[in-house]
Simulated scan of single mutants.
Amino acid sequence: MRENRRSKLSVLAGASGLALSAVTATPTLADDVPESPREVEMAADVKVVEGIAPALGPAAGPAAGPAGAAEAATASDTCLGSTAAYGSSGCFQHNADIVWAGDTKKDGMSAAVGVYTDYGRAEEVCVNNLGVNTWAGCDKDYRESGNVRLRVLRYDGDTGKFYQPEAWSGWVPVDGKY
Results as ranks from 00 to 15, higher is better:
residue 1 M to K: 11
residue 1 M to E: 12
residue 7 S to T: 12
residue 8 K to A: 13
residue 8 K to R: 14
residue 9 L to H: 07
residue 13 A to F: 03
residue 14 G to D: 00
residue 14 G to Y: 05
residue 17 G to N: 00
residue 17 G to L: 15
residue 17 G to F: 02
residue 17 G to P: 02
residue 22 A to K: 09
residue 22 A to W: 09
residue 22 A to T: 09
residue 25 A to D: 08
residue 25 A to I: 06
residue 28 T to P: 05
residue 28 T to K: 08
residue 29 L to F: 13
residue 29 L to N: 10
residue 31 D to F: 15
residue 31 D to W: 10
residue 32 D to R: 14
residue 33 V to E: 13
residue 35 E to W: 00
residue 36 S to E: 12
residue 37 P to S: 09
residue 39 E to N: 05
residue 39 E to I: 11
residue 39 E to Y: 00
residue 40 V to Y: 06
residue 42 M to E: 12
residue 43 A to G: 03
residue 45 D to C: 07
residue 45 D to R: 04
residue 47 K to G: 01
residue 50 E to S: 12
residue 52 I to H: 09
residue 54 P to Y: 13
residue 55 A to S: 13
residue 56 L to F: 09
residue 57 G to V: 15
residue 59 A to H: 05
residue 59 A to W: 03
residue 60 A to D: 01
residue 63 A to H: 03
residue 63 A to N: 06
residue 63 A to D: 14
residue 63 A to R: 06
residue 65 G to I: 13
residue 66 P to H: 13
residue 69 A to W: 13
residue 69 A to V: 13
residue 70 A to F: 10
residue 73 A to N: 05
residue 73 A to L: 04
residue 74 T to Y: 01
residue 75 A to L: 08
residue 75 A to T: 00
residue 76 S to I: 07
residue 76 S to L: 04
residue 77 D to P: 00
residue 79 C to N: 11
residue 80 L to D: 04
residue 81 G to D: 01
residue 82 S to E: 14
residue 82 S to H: 11
residue 84 A to F: 07
residue 85 A to K: 01
residue 86 Y to L: 03
residue 91 C to N: 08
residue 91 C to I: 03
residue 92 F to I: 00
residue 94 H to R: 03
residue 95 N to V: 08
residue 97 D to T: 02
residue 97 D to N: 13
residue 98 I to H: 02
residue 103 D to I: 09
residue 103 D to G: 07
residue 108 G to E: 03
residue 110 S to E: 09
residue 110 S to N: 12
residue 112 A to F: 09
residue 118 D to E: 07
residue 119 Y to S: 06
residue 122 A to Y: 03
residue 126 C to K: 04
residue 127 V to E: 02
residue 127 V to M: 11
residue 127 V to K: 01
residue 128 N to I: 09
residue 129 N to C: 08
residue 131 G to A: 10
residue 132 V to N: 07
residue 136 A to H: 08
residue 136 A to M: 11
residue 137 G to C: 09
residue 139 D to Q: 15
residue 139 D to C: 01
residue 140 K to E: 11
residue 140 K to D: 08
residue 141 D to S: 15
residue 142 Y to L: 08
residue 142 Y to Q: 04
residue 142 Y to H: 04
residue 143 R to N: 14
residue 144 E to H: 03
residue 147 N to A: 10
residue 148 V to R: 05
residue 149 R to F: 08
residue 149 R to D: 02
residue 150 L to D: 03
residue 151 R to C: 06
residue 153 L to S: 12
residue 153 L to P: 00
residue 157 G to C: 04
residue 162 F to W: 14
residue 162 F to K: 10
residue 162 F to M: 08
residue 164 Q to K: 12
residue 164 Q to D: 15
residue 164 Q to R: 11
residue 165 P to E: 12
residue 166 E to W: 08
residue 169 S to D: 01
residue 170 G to W: 01
residue 171 W to M: 06
residue 172 V to N: 06
residue 172 V to M: 06
residue 173 P to Q: 07
residue 175 D to H: 01
residue 177 K to A: 06
residue 177 K to M: 01
residue 178 Y to V: 15
residue 178 Y to W: 07
